[in-house]
Amino acid sequence: MRPFDYARADTTSDAATRAAAGATFLAGGTNLLDLMKLEVMAPEALVDVTRLDLHEVEATDESGLRIGALVTNSDLANHATVRAHYPVLSRALLSGATVQLRNKATTGGNLLQRTRCPYFYDTAAACNKRDPGTGCAAMEGRNRILAVLGASDHCIATHPSDMAVAMRALGARVVTEGPDGGRELDLGDLYRLPGDTPNIETVLSDGELITAVILPPPPAGAQSYVKVRDRASYAFALVSVAGVVAVEDGRITSANLAFGGLAPMPWRNEAVETALIGKAPSTETFDAAADILLADAKGHGDNDFKIPLARRTLRRALRELCERAA
């Protein structure tokens, strides 16, 4: 770990100003501190945002939910409204990491956690995300947990968050505040695909702080989060599906689906959802949706299996959802 300056921000604008001048936001630290110890990230200054007034979960005027960026993963998962009306989010959170980590991890930090690509964490490996232009050791290496959708020839990292996948399915919006004011954007617009600049992961500008996540009113239908992983708990997703599905008179009337473990960002493809609307639930219906989802999927050896596994996981999620929604 390199020596660094540390300051605690009292206001969001203080935090933004410091960050605009080069400091890195420190929230729960569960990802950032690990990366600093390994010198994968070596900020010269940290600005600790944990004392900012962003710890509340509140109802919005639109009957949705506004989640402060510093609400911990544990508190959010256990929040009564989230459990009752956004169970997919609660389930996703609880399927991530461990109790100890979730007690520290924050909503903002979770959205912006870095990939778990093993070569990203090994400073003796080529990695375009860590050191632009050095190459990608994962491409022909051990890439079991890496992406089959949305990746590029420069980087096949996955975004590891479970929470973000559920939020994407719920149509969450992200509220930020920066040196030049604030904005609100769709969660899907927060992330950038790697292209030839995998080191740039979001559209946030220097100093732009996530202050909250806004959930629209609870959607109709059944919700579930299915996460397939290499052990029963405390492992990142190989494939995950966050789903909200409504069924009326034996036909699917609405479907919101997002996918984890497959792509550099929580993945959503509206064509997959459209293909389900109006259809009667059946393996054929589900597989047709999977065909659309996976049309451009590309494996890299170790992770080839994710393509058929995604199909099967989607089948499982949709079958369960449709049974419960019917």
Partner: peptide, 19 residues
């Protein structure tokens, strides 16, 4: 790693002992 033999998952997050 198939090229240089290094251990890629050298931590308890990625080396999966049963939990």
């Amino acid at each position: 790693d198939p090229r240089d033999g290094r251990i890629v998952n050298h931590n308890l997050a990625e080396y999966h002992i049963p939990v």
